[in-house]
């Protein structure tokens, strides 16, 4: 279970998150929506431990573990997975080598035995099929020369291999055509399970047609200002973020 309490964070002098409270139970899918600059990606970055953000107040716990105290690799070992908005290209390191190093480190941390190359290849075989991946991508350098769709597919494939307890999808739909969007969504849906939490960060409702959330939250100016069920996403699609702003103004 992910528990975020009163989270404040800033980049240099600019306060971006201004008191986030969010609880995601195992098995639930939560969507975080909001206009550009509302703090969606910052929230994803702070949870996964990217440098450059200063947490000034609040806490983030996953299954009782204080994530803010951990290095990014320790958060990964604790079960956090971030699907990047812009996956990084790493020339000179093959996808297979990279994934096996990642998986074995995570396993080591969990007290599980490392996998030999043969065991590893067996482990990933079904996931390659699930993500409809061209297996030649495995022997290529990480994300190098991949199309936008291939990069996003590779992110979800990595998630399938690492089997995290919390998956954060940061604008995974950006730059995807409808076919790629379906493949990526199918992959995420296949990974939904009673012991896994998923946080989908997105600007548009489109992705949520395929990955149907249990809860939708609207993030504005660093705070969650409205929460609801999946119908909230449809309302946002219909009326835009302006209607939430108007509601807030009316209350004030």
């Amino acid at each position: 279970m992910l528990e975020i309490k009163n989270l404040h964070a800033r980049v240099e002098d600019k306060e971006i998150l201004r008191g986030i409270n969010l609880t995601v139970n195992p098995g639930e899918v939560h969507a975080i929506m909001g206009p550009n600059g509302s703090g969606k990606s910052t929230l994803a970055s702070v949870i996964s431990g990217k440098s450059g953000y200063e947490v000034t107040e609040g806490s983030v716990e996953l299954n009782g573990v204080d994530l803010l105290e951990l290095a990014p690799e320790e958060r990964a070992a604790a079960g956090v997975f971030l699907a990047f908005q812009y996956p990084v290209e790493i020339p000179g390191v093959t996808n297979t080598y990279f994934l096996r190093a990642a998986l074995n480190n995570v396993r080591k941390h969990r007290g599980e035995a490392e996998l030999s190359m043969t065991e590893f290849m067996k482990h990933i075989k079904s996931k390659v099929q699930m993500m409809d991946m061209d297996s030649s991508l495995l022997s290529r350098s990480v994300n190098e020369g991949f199309s936008g769709g291939e990069k996003k597919r590779n992110e979800i494939f990595q998630m399938a291999v690492l089997e995290p307890s919390l998956a954060i999808l940061d604008e995974t739909d950006s730059g995807l055509d409808i076919d790629a969007l379906k493949v990526v969504s199918n992959g995420v849906n296949a990974l939904r399970s009673p012991d896994r939490s998923v946080v989908v960060v997105t600007h548009y409702q489109r992705l949520l047609n395929y990955i149907v959330p249990d809860y939708v939250h609207v993030l504005m100016e660093g705070r969650i200002v409205k929460s609801g069920g999946k119908e909230l996403a449809l309302a946002l699609e219909d009326k835009g973020y302006a209607f939430v702003e108007e509601e807030l103004a009316a209350k004030a």
Partner: peptide
């Protein structure tokens, strides 16, 4: 950060790069 976020420790990530 990309390598670390996948669970690869900092020193190992540096060596790999």
């Amino acid at each position: 950060f990309y390598l670390q976020s996948r669970g690869i420790p900092k020193d190992e990530a540096r060596g790999l790069l």
